[in-house]
Simulated scan of single mutants.
Amino acid sequence: MLDVFDRLPDGLLDLESDQLYKILERPTLIHLEGDRQPALFVSVLLHGNETTSWLAIRELLRKHEDKRLPRSLSVFIGNISAARYRLRHLPNQPDYNRIWQTGDSPEHHMAQQVIDEMRSRGVFASIDVHNNTGRNPHYGCITHLEKDFRKLARLFGKTVVYYTSPKTVQSFAFGHFCPSIVVECGQPDVPDGTAHALEFMETCLNLDSFDSLSDSLIADIDLFHTVAIVKVPEEINFSFDGNPNDDITFPTEMDCLNFCELPIGANFGKAKSERAYLSALSEDGQEKGDRYFQIENGEIKLKIAAMPSMLTLDTDIIRQDCLCYLMERLPLP
């Protein structure tokens, strides 16, 4: 289920993300030689509707078509079939950013093949480029707090999220053998997101080592820790348009709350009844909804202060993934 090349297929850089299927038949790993070793690994299009990753890597490769890369580069192009329809994933597929731990599906075996090959070759750092459907600032996510991870994140920006769940994502798997990061570049097809991802990848390609970066680089990080994943239970109906028949009505501009430190009592929506609850799963998978939310006078309110991220107004994404994550500030190590 994986194709591996040591050169760019002819015509690849002329294609948009929804045209890649014309040349690439399946997920593809491309190794390109550069002046430094080991290679920088970049993962793109794990979600087929998150186009910034392809736009940025395509621009990077175009700039180096006629000259040697400053460091070797391995590019993994993920869900090509979903990208054709600009979908996160197809109905018959698993989420391509939830397959990087042991499993029995063809997609799990493909992901393990990528892990095994890159581990054996050595990896300088791993970058997984994503978009959000809701309004968020650009930020980086890391799975370890060692200095090299924080330095990698600070090269992207000051806002850094530390998380340890879900463990099935690409950056968690690669974090076992190299500094790894997820970079969240805002909404798809926005030029400043593409420019930011491109600049970050170029910076990493030109970096000699993480030891060459002063520890003072990471002194001003705004560090947050993901404490819960908020989901709407399957049996609960919801909307953003005030439908009185729905169990929960969320505010129409709810994604404006992303990366806002919300106080106790902040409103998360209107509940039709006491059964209209929100699930909040801790990092170890425990249900903690009662810790974070309560229903008071028909409103869902925060019981403790928290900061949401990845709040989205896309009902399909909420069903496929989650409503948001809740975070708290974390002191710098």
Score class of each variant (00 low, 15 high):
G186C: 09
P191N: 09
P191W: 03
P191Q: 12
G193H: 02
G193D: 02
A195F: 12
F200I: 04
M201V: 07
E202P: 09
C204Y: 07
L205H: 05
N206E: 15
N206F: 11
D208K: 14
D211V: 05
L213P: 04
D215H: 12
D215M: 10
S216T: 15
L217E: 08
D220P: 10
L223V: 08
T226F: 00
V230H: 00
K231N: 04
E234R: 13
E235Q: 13
N237H: 14
N237R: 15
G242V: 11
P244S: 08
P244R: 09
P251T: 02
M254A: 02
D255N: 04
N258E: 02
F259M: 12
P263A: 12
A266R: 01
A266H: 07
N267S: 07
F268L: 07
F268M: 07
G269L: 03
A271K: 00
K272I: 08
S273F: 04
A276P: 00
A276C: 09
A276G: 09
Y277W: 11
S282L: 06
G285H: 05
Q286F: 13
Q286G: 14
E287S: 06
I295W: 00
N297K: 15
E299N: 10
L302T: 12
I304A: 07
A305G: 13
R319H: 11
Q320P: 05
Q320T: 12
D321H: 03
L323E: 01
M327H: 15
E328M: 10
